[in-house]
Design a protein around this nucleic acid. Sequence first.
DNA 1: CAAAAGCTTGACGTTAACGTCAACGTAAGC
DNA 2: GCTTACGTTGACGTTAACGTCAAGCTTTTG
Lengths: 131, 131
Amino acid sequence: MPQKTHTISELARAFDITTRTIRFYEEKGLLNPQRVGQQRRYTDADRVRLTLIQRGKRIGMSLQESQAIIEMYDPAQGNVEQLERLLDNVNARKQQLHAQMQDLKQMLTELDDVEKRCQQALNIVNKKEDN
Amino acid sequence: MPQKTHTISELARAFDITTRTIRFYEEKGLLNPQRVGQQRRYTDADRVRLTLIQRGKRIGMSLQESQAIIEMYDPAQGNVEQLERLLDNVNARKQQLHAQMQDLKQMLTELDDVEKRCQQALNIVNKKEDN
DNA sequence: CAAAAGCTTGACGTTAACGTCAACGTAAGC
DNA sequence: GCTTACGTTGACGTTAACGTCAAGCTTTTG
């Protein structure tokens, strides 16, 4: 069956972003929807990209970085050399994400410490109230 | 012993940032070093804060968010109400970081998929060469 | 003690990631 | 068929996070 397509405002509603944002992403090369006359029509492939972009943003990636990852998803089916370069890029990204994971864990354990100290302070106050 | 202090350029070298950046962080309320005359003097507490800021940046936090976390570290030792608010904030942050961890994992598994597909494509090419 | 090196406060410039009009074409409901 | 809603392309505005001078003070070094 022919892919169901969406207008720009449908997509905007679905992803809770503005149409301006969607056009901006296209301007930056992250999307390029089909056209029906002047108007843009978005397929599910575009939705996948938007999902990637939003996840990227949540973990602190720039649009350029998200674009790099998107391009890894749509490999232009190149020759061996290109495949190997792609593989290198993928592994570099993976390493970076693992490092980021470590930073996240560290931040979490430090917040755990703050929580504990906070709890203790509250316990002391409560014990005083018991007297 | 009295804490050893550092000048702004010493700190800049140590953290591989510019002095402008350090002053900017102060302007935004993330640091406030002591002064000796006009000049700033930084203690280890400031280094801790800078470490936090940099880790924050690596996981995609804004300076405002890092500031919020810094303030959790230096609790103004308030009353019960303040302690409870702090605890709420800490837990909210923790939740957000856990969510971010999920996003990271997802991104990683998707990159794993790309890697596998890439490997397969290379294997096929190599087998052809065997013939 | 003079020049160089370092510190200080402005002030303006820059990039990313959109927001916010404006002015105009097109499609859709009554 | 006309209004109303939606879409399009500019162009300029905005915020965060610094970079980049400039102009002046101070401290260190030969």
